[in-house]
Design a binder for these strands. Structure first.
Lengths: 234, 234
DNA sequence: GCCAGGCTTGACACTTTCTTGACGTCTGTT
DNA sequence: AACAGACGTCAAGAAAGTGTCAAGCCTGGC
């Protein structure tokens, strides 16, 4: 449960600290198959990286050479709600209050335990991952709701088999582009089926029967003769 | 900006601590025109208060007479995302990690500065200005009361085993979405059971017998063949 | 140590999905 | 107009997935 990554990808962590020793230390303890580290060694570099990298968490040192850390927090908060965890040697209460009120999410005083840092990172990620908008594909009368794995035509829910859904998802994720027969066969049935283009035709047919208003005149899944199929947008 | 209350009303803070001295201290420092304090002096009283009071923040001591604080966090997290700030004398890193991973948002070691506590409360409130979900789920003739762990069908209380309740809760918390077999197995039985999809089927069957009017025609727990299960809304 | 409830496991019947082959249709070319 | 090649449809058997029952095991409470 703890620290589990449901996203099929790395969480990006941005470390903003001018001491390379700290950056190297964090790099060793945090670089694993869950986190991907980016580094910045000044406030301005950090601000730039926050915008370009779009990290999931920012670890920020307050004592930076160019900008004050508090200022960095404020500037980021002008446009982003990304969790900011302050790592600082300053242990005065005023510093903590100032950083937290400027928009920081958490404040750790150096030296800190690695386990605690990682637990606080996980806590911050858990909170911020709660409300991610759901990507729903829509084209004409066809709707594909990926998180719900729901396909509907004219608002009516349609029941797809696993293979049909995979096939539709493949076309949707490459909407507009032609997917060749071999690309589709490889992705869905595996290389062993490259010589069996028949299964593809059968499944396209079944899929069309379910999502096309008139399967003999496909609106969505267009045949590109001799090449493959293409999902048309509306 | 800092500490400003945009809601035309008090923020409700629930203090769960068995030492009346601490409660009185927090009451003095936090009771002002911004916060309204509620108090509970045991874990069970805290759980009950969390459900009835619906606080905006919970300040939780780990050393409670009846339940372990970690368990209190877990039980609250079963149905609520309310920010939980742990106040504890335990300063071992393991305690912090356990509390944070159980679902706590922050962890302060006693003694702490009042200013820091208030800043961390403000930070937690700032983040959680989202609407709190109802602690009771209702769909058709099915009702799940999370704080009380009570399930009823047609107003009639239904007795579920712990596993069945966990399973139902998982589906309810992801209502509408398809939970794949592996997601469910991982969450409830652990990764070791990924190759044992049979236990899942048996439990789904048992659960259906208890909550479905006609278990052979499920209204709530829908099978998505080859993929998983999904709780339908009405 | 016994009992009750809950969990796991296996057997088996049932349902859905996948694969395969036969055949029909379309399109562009000669 | 006939043909070739590619594409689409249908249906039946095979395979995979799913639901149910019940026996045995484990565990915690008494």
């Amino acid at each position: 449960m703890a620290g589990q990554n449901n996203r099929n990808s790395f969480y990006k962590i941005l470390v903003v600290d001018d001491e390379s020793a700290i950056r190297r230390f964090l790099s060793t303890v945090l670089s694993n198959d869950e986190f991907l580290l980016h580094e910045a060694e000044s406030g301005n570099a950090g601000l730039a990286a926050a915008a370009t990298v779009r990290p999931d968490v920012i670890l920020l040192d307050l004592g930076l050479p160019d900008l004050d850390g508090i200022e960095v927090i404020r500037r980021i908060r002008e446009w982003s709600q990304v969790p900011i965890i302050v790592l600082s040697v300053r242990e005065r209460e005023d510093d903590k209050v100032a950083a937290l009120d400027a928009g920081a999410d958490d404040y750790l005083t150096k030296p800190f335990g690695v386990g605690e840092l990682m637990a606080r990172i996980r806590a911050a990620l858990r909170r911020s991952q709660q409300d991610v908008p759901e990507p729903v594909f829509s084209s004409g009368n066809l709707q594909v709701d990926f998180p719900r794995r729901l396909v509907s035509v004219d608002g009516q829910e349609v029941q797809l088999t696993p293979t049909e859904y995979d096939l539709l998802r493949l076309l949707v994720t490459h909407v507009g582009k032609v997917m060749t027969h071999s690309q589709i066969l490889k992705q869905i049935w595996g290389v062993a089926y490259l010589e069996q283009p028949h299964v593809l035709r059968v499944n396209i047919s079944n899929l069309r029967r379910k999502i096309e208003t008139d399967p003999s005149r496909p609106q969505h899944i267009i045949t590109e003769p001799g090449v493959g199929y293409r999902l048309k947008t509306y």
